[in-house]
Amino acid sequence: MSVVAEHWHELVTAALLGTDRRDPPDAPPGPLADAVADCAAPTPSGRMLAAVATCTAVRRAGLRPRPPVTPLAPPESDDRPTVSQAAARRWRSVVAQWPVLEDEWLAVVESCNRRLPPDVLVGLLQRHSGDAMRWSRVMRIGDPLASWLVEQQPDLAARAGRPRRAVANEPPTLPVPPSLVPLLAADTDTIVRVLVGGVLDGTFAAAHRAVLVNFLARMRPDACHPLAVALRDADPPHPVVSLVHLLADLAETRHQMLEELA
Protein backbone atom coordinates (compact mmCIF):
# COMPACT_ATOMS: atom_id res chain seq x y z
CA MET A 1 0.00 0.00 0.00
CA SER A 2 1.40 3.42 -0.93
CA VAL A 3 2.01 6.10 1.68
CA VAL A 4 -0.92 8.16 0.38
CA ALA A 5 -3.25 5.15 0.39
CA GLU A 6 -2.20 4.30 3.93
CA HIS A 7 -2.78 7.86 5.11
CA TRP A 8 -6.17 7.89 3.38
CA HIS A 9 -7.12 4.71 5.22
CA GLU A 10 -6.21 6.35 8.54
CA LEU A 11 -8.25 9.41 7.62
CA VAL A 12 -11.31 7.27 6.84
CA THR A 13 -10.99 5.50 10.21
CA ALA A 14 -10.68 8.81 12.06
CA ALA A 15 -13.58 10.31 10.09
CA LEU A 16 -15.85 7.42 11.03
CA LEU A 17 -15.36 8.14 14.71
CA GLY A 18 -15.18 11.91 14.42
CA THR A 19 -12.52 14.25 15.74
CA ASP A 20 -14.45 14.65 19.00
CA ARG A 21 -13.40 11.08 19.77
CA ARG A 22 -10.17 10.64 17.87
CA ASP A 23 -7.46 13.10 16.84
CA PRO A 24 -6.81 13.30 13.11
CA PRO A 25 -3.75 11.34 11.96
CA ASP A 26 -0.57 13.20 11.10
CA ALA A 27 0.10 13.47 7.38
CA PRO A 28 3.20 11.59 6.19
CA PRO A 29 6.23 13.93 5.87
CA GLY A 30 6.54 15.49 2.45
CA PRO A 31 4.35 17.59 0.15
CA LEU A 32 1.15 16.24 1.67
CA ALA A 33 2.18 17.31 5.18
CA ASP A 34 3.36 20.68 3.85
CA ALA A 35 0.03 21.31 2.14
CA VAL A 36 -1.90 20.42 5.28
CA ALA A 37 0.42 22.56 7.41
CA ASP A 38 -0.43 25.57 5.22
CA CYS A 39 -3.96 25.34 6.52
CA ALA A 40 -4.31 27.58 9.50
CA ALA A 41 -7.35 25.81 10.95
CA PRO A 42 -7.24 25.98 14.73
CA THR A 43 -9.49 23.01 15.41
CA PRO A 44 -8.81 19.29 14.92
CA SER A 45 -11.84 19.03 12.64
CA GLY A 46 -10.57 21.93 10.53
CA ARG A 47 -7.15 20.30 10.19
CA MET A 48 -8.81 17.02 9.37
CA LEU A 49 -10.91 18.68 6.64
CA ALA A 50 -7.77 20.16 5.11
CA ALA A 51 -6.06 16.77 5.21
CA VAL A 52 -9.06 15.04 3.60
CA ALA A 53 -9.28 17.65 0.83
CA THR A 54 -5.55 17.49 0.11
CA CYS A 55 -5.43 13.72 0.14
CA THR A 56 -8.47 13.49 -2.16
CA ALA A 57 -6.90 15.87 -4.68
CA VAL A 58 -3.60 13.95 -4.57
CA ARG A 59 -5.30 10.59 -5.01
CA ARG A 60 -7.31 11.80 -7.99
CA ALA A 61 -4.43 13.54 -9.72
CA GLY A 62 -2.20 10.54 -9.10
CA LEU A 63 -4.48 8.14 -10.93
CA ARG A 64 -2.44 5.03 -11.72
CA PRO A 65 -3.42 1.83 -13.48
CA ARG A 66 -3.61 -1.44 -11.61
CA PRO A 67 -1.38 -4.30 -12.75
CA PRO A 68 -2.30 -5.88 -16.11
CA VAL A 69 -4.79 -8.75 -16.05
CA THR A 70 -4.88 -11.82 -18.28
CA PRO A 71 -7.33 -11.14 -21.11
CA LEU A 72 -10.20 -13.49 -21.89
CA ALA A 73 -9.53 -16.31 -24.34
CA PRO A 74 -11.09 -15.09 -27.60
CA PRO A 75 -13.80 -17.05 -29.44
CA GLU A 76 -13.13 -18.90 -32.69
CA SER A 77 -12.60 -16.53 -35.57
CA ASP A 78 -15.52 -15.73 -37.83
CA ASP A 79 -14.79 -14.56 -41.38
CA ARG A 80 -18.37 -13.88 -42.44
CA PRO A 81 -19.12 -10.30 -43.50
CA THR A 82 -21.00 -8.29 -40.90
CA VAL A 83 -24.54 -7.08 -41.46
CA SER A 84 -24.42 -3.50 -42.74
CA GLN A 85 -25.04 -0.54 -40.48
CA ALA A 86 -28.20 0.32 -42.36
CA ALA A 87 -29.51 -3.20 -41.79
CA ALA A 88 -28.59 -3.00 -38.09
CA ARG A 89 -30.48 0.28 -37.79
CA ARG A 90 -33.38 -1.29 -39.64
CA TRP A 91 -33.51 -4.12 -37.11
CA ARG A 92 -33.92 -1.57 -34.33
CA SER A 93 -36.72 0.23 -36.11
CA VAL A 94 -38.41 -3.06 -37.06
CA VAL A 95 -38.35 -4.18 -33.43
CA ALA A 96 -39.83 -0.87 -32.34
CA GLN A 97 -42.44 -0.44 -35.07
CA TRP A 98 -42.96 -3.63 -37.09
CA PRO A 99 -41.96 -6.65 -34.96
CA VAL A 100 -43.91 -8.78 -37.44
CA LEU A 101 -40.91 -8.41 -39.78
CA GLU A 102 -38.22 -9.47 -37.30
CA ASP A 103 -38.37 -13.19 -38.10
CA GLU A 104 -37.85 -12.44 -41.79
CA TRP A 105 -34.94 -10.11 -40.96
CA LEU A 106 -33.26 -12.94 -39.06
CA ALA A 107 -34.07 -15.49 -41.76
CA VAL A 108 -32.47 -13.34 -44.46
CA VAL A 109 -29.37 -12.71 -42.34
CA GLU A 110 -29.04 -16.44 -41.83
CA SER A 111 -29.58 -17.31 -45.48
CA CYS A 112 -27.05 -14.66 -46.59
CA ASN A 113 -24.55 -16.06 -44.08
CA ARG A 114 -23.90 -12.69 -42.48
CA ARG A 115 -22.41 -12.03 -39.06
CA LEU A 116 -24.50 -10.12 -36.51
CA PRO A 117 -22.97 -6.85 -35.25
CA PRO A 118 -22.12 -7.02 -31.52
CA ASP A 119 -24.82 -4.59 -30.41
CA VAL A 120 -27.51 -6.35 -32.45
CA LEU A 121 -26.40 -9.76 -31.16
CA VAL A 122 -26.66 -8.56 -27.56
CA GLY A 123 -30.00 -6.91 -28.27
CA LEU A 124 -31.40 -10.06 -29.87
CA LEU A 125 -30.22 -12.31 -27.03
CA GLN A 126 -31.73 -9.99 -24.43
CA ARG A 127 -34.95 -9.59 -26.40
CA HIS A 128 -35.52 -13.31 -26.91
CA SER A 129 -34.16 -14.69 -23.66
CA GLY A 130 -37.70 -15.74 -22.77
CA ASP A 131 -38.42 -17.31 -26.17
CA ALA A 132 -36.41 -20.52 -26.50
CA MET A 133 -37.06 -20.99 -30.22
CA ARG A 134 -35.97 -17.52 -31.30
CA TRP A 135 -33.11 -17.41 -28.76
CA SER A 136 -31.73 -20.65 -30.23
CA ARG A 137 -32.01 -19.23 -33.69
CA VAL A 138 -30.06 -16.13 -32.65
CA MET A 139 -27.41 -18.36 -31.10
CA ARG A 140 -27.18 -20.33 -34.34
CA ILE A 141 -26.74 -17.18 -36.43
CA GLY A 142 -24.47 -15.50 -33.87
CA ASP A 143 -22.07 -18.39 -33.25
CA PRO A 144 -19.21 -18.71 -32.51
CA LEU A 145 -19.28 -15.29 -30.83
CA ALA A 146 -22.73 -15.88 -29.33
CA SER A 147 -21.77 -18.98 -27.35
CA TRP A 148 -18.58 -17.32 -26.13
CA LEU A 149 -20.52 -14.22 -25.12
CA VAL A 150 -23.12 -16.17 -23.15
CA GLU A 151 -20.27 -17.84 -21.26
CA GLN A 152 -18.89 -14.44 -20.28
CA GLN A 153 -22.28 -12.86 -19.66
CA PRO A 154 -24.58 -15.54 -18.24
CA ASP A 155 -27.41 -12.99 -18.03
CA LEU A 156 -27.78 -13.39 -21.79
CA ALA A 157 -28.64 -17.10 -21.50
CA ALA A 158 -32.17 -18.21 -22.33
CA ARG A 159 -34.52 -18.07 -19.38
CA ALA A 160 -37.03 -20.43 -20.95
CA GLY A 161 -34.62 -23.30 -21.65
CA ARG A 162 -33.67 -24.75 -25.03
CA PRO A 163 -36.40 -26.07 -27.36
CA ARG A 164 -37.02 -29.80 -27.08
CA ARG A 165 -37.88 -30.51 -30.70
CA ALA A 166 -36.03 -29.56 -33.83
CA VAL A 167 -39.29 -28.51 -35.48
CA ALA A 168 -39.60 -25.67 -33.03
CA ASN A 169 -36.59 -24.04 -34.60
CA GLU A 170 -38.74 -22.43 -37.26
CA PRO A 171 -40.88 -19.45 -36.31
CA PRO A 172 -44.65 -19.89 -36.64
CA THR A 173 -46.26 -18.84 -39.93
CA LEU A 174 -48.22 -15.61 -39.68
CA PRO A 175 -51.93 -16.40 -39.97
CA VAL A 176 -53.80 -15.08 -43.01
CA PRO A 177 -57.54 -15.64 -43.66
CA PRO A 178 -58.33 -18.38 -46.22
CA SER A 179 -59.77 -15.82 -48.62
CA LEU A 180 -56.38 -14.13 -48.92
CA VAL A 181 -54.24 -17.26 -49.13
CA PRO A 182 -54.51 -17.56 -52.96
CA LEU A 183 -53.36 -13.97 -53.24
CA LEU A 184 -50.04 -14.91 -51.64
CA ALA A 185 -49.08 -16.69 -54.83
CA ALA A 186 -50.51 -14.07 -57.18
CA ASP A 187 -48.43 -11.71 -59.32
CA THR A 188 -47.56 -8.21 -58.20
CA ASP A 189 -50.22 -6.43 -60.28
CA THR A 190 -52.97 -8.62 -58.89
CA ILE A 191 -51.83 -8.09 -55.30
CA VAL A 192 -51.71 -4.34 -55.77
CA ARG A 193 -55.09 -4.23 -57.52
CA VAL A 194 -56.89 -6.40 -54.96
CA LEU A 195 -55.45 -4.75 -51.89
CA VAL A 196 -55.67 -1.12 -52.99
CA GLY A 197 -59.09 -1.69 -54.55
CA GLY A 198 -60.28 -3.54 -51.47
CA VAL A 199 -59.23 -0.74 -49.14
CA LEU A 200 -60.81 1.94 -51.32
CA ASP A 201 -64.12 0.15 -51.94
CA GLY A 202 -64.57 -0.79 -48.28
CA THR A 203 -63.84 -4.53 -48.59
CA PHE A 204 -61.00 -3.97 -46.11
CA ALA A 205 -61.52 -1.67 -43.17
CA ALA A 206 -59.65 -0.80 -40.00
CA ALA A 207 -60.92 -4.02 -38.43
CA HIS A 208 -58.85 -6.00 -40.96
CA ARG A 209 -55.62 -4.33 -39.86
CA ALA A 210 -54.09 -7.40 -38.19
CA VAL A 211 -54.69 -9.79 -41.09
CA LEU A 212 -53.56 -7.27 -43.66
CA VAL A 213 -50.35 -6.67 -41.69
CA ASN A 214 -49.72 -10.42 -41.64
CA PHE A 215 -50.47 -10.64 -45.35
CA LEU A 216 -48.02 -7.87 -46.22
CA ALA A 217 -45.35 -9.55 -44.08
CA ARG A 218 -45.85 -12.81 -46.01
CA MET A 219 -46.59 -11.72 -49.56
CA ARG A 220 -43.97 -11.91 -52.32
CA PRO A 221 -41.21 -9.40 -51.61
CA ASP A 222 -41.21 -7.83 -55.08
CA ALA A 223 -44.77 -6.62 -54.52
CA CYS A 224 -43.78 -4.46 -51.52
CA HIS A 225 -42.51 -1.37 -53.29
CA PRO A 226 -45.27 -1.18 -55.97
CA LEU A 227 -47.87 -1.68 -53.27
CA ALA A 228 -46.35 1.04 -51.09
CA VAL A 229 -46.35 3.45 -54.06
CA ALA A 230 -49.94 2.59 -55.02
CA LEU A 231 -51.16 3.02 -51.44
CA ARG A 232 -49.41 6.36 -51.14
CA ASP A 233 -50.92 7.58 -54.41
CA ALA A 234 -54.42 6.44 -53.46
CA ASP A 235 -57.03 8.89 -52.26
CA PRO A 236 -58.66 6.85 -49.50
CA PRO A 237 -61.96 7.72 -47.84
CA HIS A 238 -61.68 9.20 -44.38
CA PRO A 239 -62.32 6.02 -42.30
CA VAL A 240 -59.37 4.16 -43.84
CA VAL A 241 -56.81 6.96 -44.20
CA SER A 242 -54.73 5.78 -41.25
CA LEU A 243 -54.98 2.14 -42.39
CA VAL A 244 -53.68 3.08 -45.84
CA HIS A 245 -50.76 5.05 -44.39
CA LEU A 246 -49.94 2.22 -42.03
CA LEU A 247 -49.94 -0.43 -44.77
CA ALA A 248 -47.87 1.78 -47.06
CA ASP A 249 -45.32 2.24 -44.28
CA LEU A 250 -45.15 -1.51 -43.62
CA ALA A 251 -44.75 -2.35 -47.31
CA GLU A 252 -42.02 0.26 -47.77
CA THR A 253 -40.23 -0.82 -44.55
CA ARG A 254 -40.19 -4.44 -45.70
CA HIS A 255 -38.96 -3.43 -49.14
CA GLN A 256 -36.10 -1.36 -47.68
CA MET A 257 -35.27 -4.05 -45.13
CA LEU A 258 -34.80 -6.63 -47.86
CA GLU A 259 -32.81 -4.20 -50.02
CA GLU A 260 -30.44 -3.49 -47.14
CA LEU A 261 -29.93 -7.17 -46.43
CA ALA A 262 -29.43 -8.12 -50.09
Binding site: A15, T19, D20
Partner: peptide, 8 residues
Amino acid sequence: DDRLRTGL
Protein backbone atom coordinates in the same frame (compact mmCIF):
# COMPACT_ATOMS: atom_id res chain seq x y z
CA ASP B 1 -16.50 20.91 10.02
CA ASP B 2 -19.41 19.66 12.14
CA ARG B 3 -19.60 16.47 10.08
CA LEU B 4 -15.96 15.62 10.74
CA ARG B 5 -16.30 16.55 14.39
CA THR B 6 -19.23 14.22 15.00
CA GLY B 7 -18.03 11.56 12.55
CA LEU B 8 -19.50 9.74 9.58
